[in-house]
Design a protein around this nucleic acid. Structure first.
Lengths: 206, 206
DNA sequence: GTCTATACGCGGATAGAC
DNA sequence: GTCTATCCGCGTATAGAC
């Protein structure tokens, strides 16, 4: 075997482990998850999993890190130059896409927060707080310019986050209520349109 | 000791156990929770906890049941006779109050759904599905009468659920972002007003 | 690098003393 | 009814064979 091939196996195995771990952590939480289950789901011996990641804590950190990376990339951005209408259309659309295409990332994140954000306190205190502050300022500028109704920007941010993430986190409940097995590709557009239009009306934009 | 006093102890102990269990299940999930932790939090020996509830599964069921009861009571109702404006004001107000005053109930419920609703599939399939169907019909009637804008009622229901519950489930994140230790009583009113007004505008009611 | 075998502790549950 | 002592299995992690 060449080094290249071994490196390939390493990468492939780590990838399989992280995907398996994501499922296991969602199903059973950090403490309830077992390395054995992760190994079984990944189709590898338990010892290999621990060889690659040393211990359970490290696996979880790796899963969380990928989740945050995804948030960072997929989220798009809110910039002043877009104006309120386009900015909100872009942002809501990106968030809804994320929820439907990567519900597991959203679920891992939600569980971590509900359980007290033990592993994400620092992320919230620094990155997230700054993000909210920055975007609030942009919304406030638009409010001052009379381009949207006068609301607390932070309430708006929470409303957008919650109403979009709901389709990922509460997927099981939504599908059960609607008596369906899976989301369809059409759902993304339907929800995006509903939320975008609803929010724009709520802000009296156009 | 009289029977009465013993009954009192029984009730008090069960109450302490259920409150402790709620915290433990939120922090560590069903599988990660330990009977020993619940006992410690309740200030009772582990054997007593198992004496009252037989096993961990039963404790969890009891906690879930209380959560659903609370949902049932606290949620208020949406009735045709109120008309869309009053109905939404009442409903949003009740949901926000619940989120701020009983965040733990909301968190237990959210975790259960995120993890796949193993213990609540039946509740969703029967009770919840019917609830959504009934309320959708009421909204549809108001739509047909031109008293609110034409949207999919189910999207509206999900938006109200998610935007109100967010303040309970994501409490930790919200407080961290806002750099505060706890919610204040004023927050309930502020959030209620924001969400109510926003949603009424989104539906073009008034 | 990969896997088997095992040490060691924790957790659920019960038996039985008080 | 209440609590102590204990059983037994599972889970993490590692030692060491291959």
């Amino acid at each position: 075997m060449t080094d290249k091939k071994q490196g390939q196996i390493r990468i492939k195995s780590q990838e399989k482990i992280l995907l398996a771990a994501q499922d296991e952590f969602i199903s059973n939480g950090y403490k309830g998850a077992t390395v054995q289950s992760i190994a079984d789901l990944a189709g590898l011996p338990k010892a290999n999993v621990l060889y690659y990641f040393k211990n359970k804590e490290n696996i979880y950190h790796a899963v969380l890190e990928r989740t945050l990376d995804m948030w960072d990339q997929g989220i798009g951005d809110i910039v002043y130059e877009d104006g309120p209408k386009v900015a909100i259309e872009k942002f809501v659309s990106a968030k809804v896409k994320m929820s439907f295409h990567h519900p597991k990332a959203s679920k891992i994140y939600a569980m971590e927060i509900i359980q007290g954000a033990q592993h994400l306190k620092e992320f919230a205190r620094t990155y997230l707080r700054k993000w909210v502050r920055d975007k609030s300022k942009i919304f406030q500028r638009w409010i001052d310019e009379g381009r949207m109704i006068n609301i607390e920007p932070i309430n708006l941010i929470f409303l957008i986050w919650s109403s979009t993430q709901h389709y990922a986190d509460f997927e099981t409940q939504i599908l059960t209520i609607m008596n369906r097995a899976d989301y369809e590709e059409d759902d993304v557009e339907q929800v995006t349109d509903f939320l975008t239009q609803f929010i724009l009306r709520g802000l009296e934009i156009q």
